[in-house]
C-alpha cells in the first residue's frame, strides 16, 4: 500500500526553479532514500511533503488523502537535532504528545517505554547540551517517532556526526526499523548511506531537480562496484555546476 504519493510536484523558491515535476512514492514499512547533490532541493521536497510550504503545482497524498500544504500529519526530522536547551531529554521528546493533548503523566510513561530501544535510558533528566551528538540525534529521532510513527521524513539526520558514530546510527536505525513499523523517507547526499539504508533509492539531478533514476535494492544482495561507480558518476555529473 502506498503511504506517501508525491505527484508531479514543481516549485520555484525565491526565484530559483527548484523542483521540476517530481513524482515518487513511499510504500508501507519501506525505507526510501532520496539521493542528490547538495543544494538540489531535497529539503524543499521534504518541506512540501510535511506541509510547511505549498508546491506551485502537483499534489501530496498520504494514505490516499490530499495533504498538499497541510502540516501535522507526518513527522519531520531536520539536519539539526533542534532539541530545546531549556528542557530535559524526557521533556523534549514528550512535546509532540503534549501538543496532541496527552496528559503529562501519560506522555512521560509512553515516552519512557521507548527509551531502551532508542538508547537513552538513564539520560531522561539530562539537558541536551550534556549529551553527545549521537545521543542528541537519537533523542530527536524519538521525538520524531512519537509525533507520527507511521511516516517519518528524515533530512540528513546523521550528517553532522563523525563517521564512526554515523555508521553506528545506521545499524541502529536498521535494527530499530525491523520492529517498529514505519515508512521512512530519508534524504541524503551520501551514497554509502543510501545503499546501506534503502529499500529503494531515487536519484535527483541538480537544480531544477528531476528524478534521474529509480533503483530497487535487494537488501540481501551485495552492491557491485559497478553499481556504485554508476551512482557516483551520476552524482558527480550533477554536482559539476557547484564546484
Amino acid at each position: 500500500m502506498t503511504k506517501i504519493m508525491v505527484d508531479k510536484i514543481s516549485k520555484t523558491l525565491d526565484g530559483l526553479y527548484t523542483l521540476a515535476d517530481i513524482s515518487l512514492t513511499v510504500g508501507e514499512n519501506e525505507i526510501v532514500v532520496v539521493l542528490g547533490p547538495s543544494g538540489c532541493g531535497k529539503s524543499t521536497l521534504l518541506n512540501i511533503i510535511s506541509g510547511l510550504i505549498t508546491p506551485d503545482s502537483g499534489t501530496i497524498k498520504i494514505d490516499g488523502a490530499d495533504y498538499t500544504g497541510k502540516t501535522a500529519r507526518v513527522s519531520y526530522m531536520q539536519q539539526k537535532d533542534l532539541l530545546l536547551d531549556s528542557r530535559s531529554i524526557l521533556d523534549n521528546v514528550t512535546i509532540p504528545l503534549l501538543l496532541k493533548g496527552m496528559t503529562k503523566n501519560k506522555a512521560q510513561a509512553y515516552a519512557r517505554s521507548h527509551f531502551t530501544d532508542f538508547g537513552l535510558v538513564g539520560f531522561e533528566h539530562y539537558y541536551p547540551r550534556q549529551l553527545s551528538g549521537g545521543m542528541r540525534q537519537r533523542a530527536a529521532l524519538l521525538r520524531t517517532y512519537l509525533f507520527a510513527s507511521d511516516i517519518m521524513l528524515l533530512d540528513e539526520p546523521f550528517a553532522a556526526l563523525d563517521a564512526i558514530t554515523r555508521r553506528k546510527m545506521h545499524l541502529w536505525l536498521l535494527k530499530l526499523h525491523k520492529h517498529y513499523q514505519s515508512s521512512i523517507l530519508f534524504v541524503t547526499h551520501d551514497i554509502e548511506e543510501a545503499l546501506l539504508l534503502a529499500d529503494r533509492v531515487y536519484i535527483l539531478s541538480s537544480r531544477p531537480a528531476v528524478i534521474r533514476r529509480e533503483l530497487q535494492l535487494d537488501q540481501t544482495a551485495a552492491f557491485t562496484p559497478d553499481m556504485k561507480m554508476d551512482l557516483l558518476a551520476i552524482l558527480e555529473e550533477e554536482s559539476n555546476d557547484h564546484f
Binding site: 501535522a72 519531520y76 533542534l82 530545546l84 531549556s86 509532540p96 501538543l99
Partner: peptide, 25 residues
Amino acid sequence: SDQLSLFRSMGAGRWETFKIVKFPA
C-alpha cells in the same frame, strides 16, 4: 527558524510555540 518550523510541522499554535520555544529561549 528551523526550530519554529519544526513546531509548525507538528501543528503547534502560536501561543504553544511562544510558551515552549520562544520564552524559555
